[in-house]
């Protein structure tokens, strides 16, 4: 029950972070609360570690007779997770289709330089602009898919009865460890993509519009408080300088030709688009983080020879969750990164 209390304090601590009115003293409480959550989890795990034997109650009611109870509950849990992401996607769809995209606002010429217009700027527009910008997301996709495979391999070896226990321990630890590393890779690349960015070697720059750095989304100004977002995509002068200019069949071009629009750089309020992007992918990131914490424990348990064919099912339950997280990413990726 310490678990429970730990999590209460965690959310309580969240409350203290008053966003803009940053109160530095509250950060200590956030960490204290996190520590209590970890404490609760440790107690939970200690009970699990010391628990030997494989009491796995079987279902008695139709239609699940003979199936592990916990397996049914994991599936039911995933049902609610499904609804969580459905709600996030409905938010996304509402705003994606309900707010005019920045590109069409820019091309329609319905803006004046220096005044912010509200429009929807999908993160995909920035990310899909260059092969290198999309690289972290693409690598992440493969990392997750491969990690789904490694977790299944871990389960397979844990379940194999005709395997020496030492060999099994080694293999299971290795595969679970690989899954952990891939999951951490996923989050690290995400941080690079969001906050850090990365440089490109000279010879690749020509494939990246002559630019030698890939800017992070943060550096691009794609932020939840970006009420005056400016980007060179929406700058007539920049477009003219960089050769390709403005497409001639846009209304903006016609207006500028006719002299009714003076051109310049459009300023946009993209707070809604950024909120949707960061919160949806962030929720997925939190799921991955939860997976990492679980994986670390499982790898530790495996390394001490904790998995036998009798209790290997718990790897399976984790696997179900992990496959779900993977699947969600496969849907998030095209919607938020490509399209």
């Amino acid at each position: 029950m310490s678990v429970g209390i730990g999590i209460f304090l965690f959310s309580l601590a969240g409350v203290y972070e008053w966003g803009e009115m940053v109160d530095a003293s509250s950060i200590g409480i956030v960490f204290a609360a996190l520590a209590i959550v970890m404490f609760g989890l440790t107690i939970f795990w200690r009970q699990d570690m010391s628990f030997d034997g494989a009491y796995e109650p079987k279902a008695t009611g139709t239609p699940f007779r003979g199936i592990d109870i916990r397996k049914v509950s994991v599936w039911i849990f995933l049902m609610s997770e499904m609804m969580v992401f459905t709600s996030l996607f409905s938010t996304y769809m509402r705003y994606r289709f309900g707010i005019e995209s920045c590109e069409s606002v820019f091309e329609s010429g319905q803006w004046v330089e220096g005044t912010s217009v509200t429009c929807f700027e999908p993160a995909g527009h920035l990310i899909a602009s260059s092969w290198f910008h999309i690289a972290p997301g693409a690598i992440n996709t493969f990392a997750l898919i491969v990690s789904s495979f490694t977790v299944v391999q871990a389960l397979r070896y844990a379940k194999k009865v005709d395997l020496d226990h030492k060999v099994r321990t080694k293999l299971v630890t290795r595969y679970l460890g690989a899954t952990t590393v891939l999951a951490i890779l996923f989050l690290s690349l995400k941080m690079i993509e969001w906050f850090i960015g990365f440089p490109l070697p000279e010879f690749l720059a020509e494939y990246n519009h002559g630019d030698t750095t890939i800017k992070s989304l943060y550096a691009e100004g794609y932020l939840i408080n970006a009420d005056s977002y400016q980007h060179h995509y929406y700058d007539t002068a920049y477009l003219a300088d960089h050769g390709h200019g403005l497409s001639h069949d846009t209304e903006l071009y016609a207006m500028m030709e006719a002299g009714t629009h003076s051109g310049g750089q459009m300023m946009a309020n993209i707070r809604v688009s950024a909120s949707t992007f960061y919160v949806t992918t962030g929720t997925h990131g939190v799921h991955v983080l939860g997976g990492i914490i679980g994986l670390m424990y499982m790898t530790f348990k495996a390394s001490r020879g904790g998995y036998t064919p009798e209790n290997a099912v718990s790897i399976e339950y984790f696997g179900l969750y992990w496959h779900f997280v993977d699947l969600v990413w496969v849907i998030v990726f095209p919607f938020f990164y490509l399209y």
């Binding site: 969240g14 409350v15 609610s80 969580v84 709600s87 909120s275 919160v279």
Partner: peptide
């Protein structure tokens, strides 16, 4: 089946109020 929608709505409101998202 219904409460995750509420939960997500609440989280959006919470984030709006705390970290300044704009849902």
């Amino acid at each position: 089946l219904s409460i995750p929608a509420f939960g997500i709505g609440l989280i959006q409101v919470y984030l709006d109020r705390v970290i300044g998202t704009a849902f």
